[in-house]
Write a protein that binds this DNA or RNA. Structure first.
Lengths: 211, 211
DNA sequence: TACATTAGCAAACAAATGTTCGGTTGAGAT
DNA sequence: ATCTCAACCGAACATTTGTTTGCTAATGTA
């Protein structure tokens, strides 16, 4: 009999799992939530109220969030999916323009943050060259950068040198002078002057695509 | 006078750029689209029809897509943002269960694909150990894997060895026998037998988080 | 001046969609 | 047999929200 209780339980959670999977997949494909009726059609439930009931359950279980009243406003809880934050990808830096001006934004790339973040605090940059291969950063990789000027010895930073954004490790020599260290023995250290040059931020993530 | 034409033009495109930025930001923060009225409130336009008009323009310019009639169904064109596809992250593989059973799915992570893909064709795996550091894959990195068994010499693959999913380079020796090659001179090659072991897929992307 | 264009507003409309209510069915418990 | 409960249906309801229409003001043009 405990088996039958279990059976009814599993049936319920199976439907709910199916709904959950449908929502995740739908959002993946469409970039916006499904409506209750679309969910019903997707998993084979005819009544909107039944779907609604399951959604409430899923919400109680903490798997997803619904904005009451709003349409197509289902969101999967960050515990179970990452929150894809769209980060502006800085392309070639146009001379004269501020680095983060919209002219320099090539496109937006999604990065799966764990915590909620303010999108404006981050940017993305495509790495050019092999000067950081010993830090496992390859040519063509996209680094996610947190905008900050508070950086420590050993941080991988993005610095603006002659209208060119470069990725290097920041280090201090024995006399406390800052320099930029390429993680590749073929390259030389670059002295860094805070007056003439500028730290744009610290690398906090990376995306690589190989297809 | 050409200046004045330009002025009115820039004014229009400025409003539209503001709307575009608002939408990107809103979707980043909420994971679903704003409604026309929310956009209006966000950029300081009182009339829904004005916002609607600008959206049409933005759609003509190819910056975004709207599903006619559907609510909160604005989507930024993949040319300007990547499409965040939610990929299931395979955690510890439970003995006996199929690898891709939902029991083994730890969570979903977003990966910025360029082209539209079917989410079911990919999975994600957290890399354990430093056996691939010479391929710039570190301990803790998340690799994105395309489910396929068609792999070539030199491909970085995910193989299932003793209920453990491992990332290695697939190679063939001179006699055509397959083996798994760790990209780290401290590790030994592993002979690979297609009968007893299984190729789960080929690595096609990578996510690293360091914060 | 008269006309065209553009950005904006307000109001009304219609469609999509979340929410609620009552009823039905089947399995398990009392 | 009777009761309870969970899953489901169908229909009605209430909002949200996309769409349309007509109007005004400002600007540049013929």
């Amino acid at each position: 009999m405990s088996q039958q209780v279990q059976k009814s339980r599993t049936k319920a959670s199976e439907t709910q799992a199916a709904i959950f999977r449908f929502i995740v997949r739908y959002i993946s494909e469409h970039a916006f939530s499904p409506s209750i009726r679309e969910i019903g059609r997707g998993v084979g439930i005819a009544s909107t109220s039944t779907v609604h009931h399951h959604l409430k359950k899923l919400e109680e279980e903490g798997l997803l969030e619904m904005r009451s009243g709003k349409r197509r406003a289902i969101r999967v809880t960050s515990h179970h999916t990452s929150v894809p934050v769209q980060v502006p990808l800085i392309g070639r830096v146009a001379a004269g323009k501020p680095v983060f001006a919209s002219e320099n934004i090539e496109k937006y790339v999604a990065f799966p943050f764990n915590r909620t973040t303010t999108p404006g605090d981050y940017f993305a940059l495509r790495v050019q060259g092999d000067s950081m291969i010993d830090a496992a950063i390859l040519d063509g990789d996209i680094v996610i950068v947190e905008k900050t000027t508070i950086v420590q010895d050993g941080d991988i930073v993005v610095a603006l040198l002659d209208d060119e954004a470069t990725v290097k490790t920041l280090k201090y020599d024995t006399s406390g002078r800052a320099y930029l260290h390429p993680e590749n023995s073929l390259y030389e250290d670059i002295p860094f002057d805070r007056e003439s040059s500028q730290i744009l931020g610290a690398v906090c993530g990376l995306i690589r695509k190989s297809f």
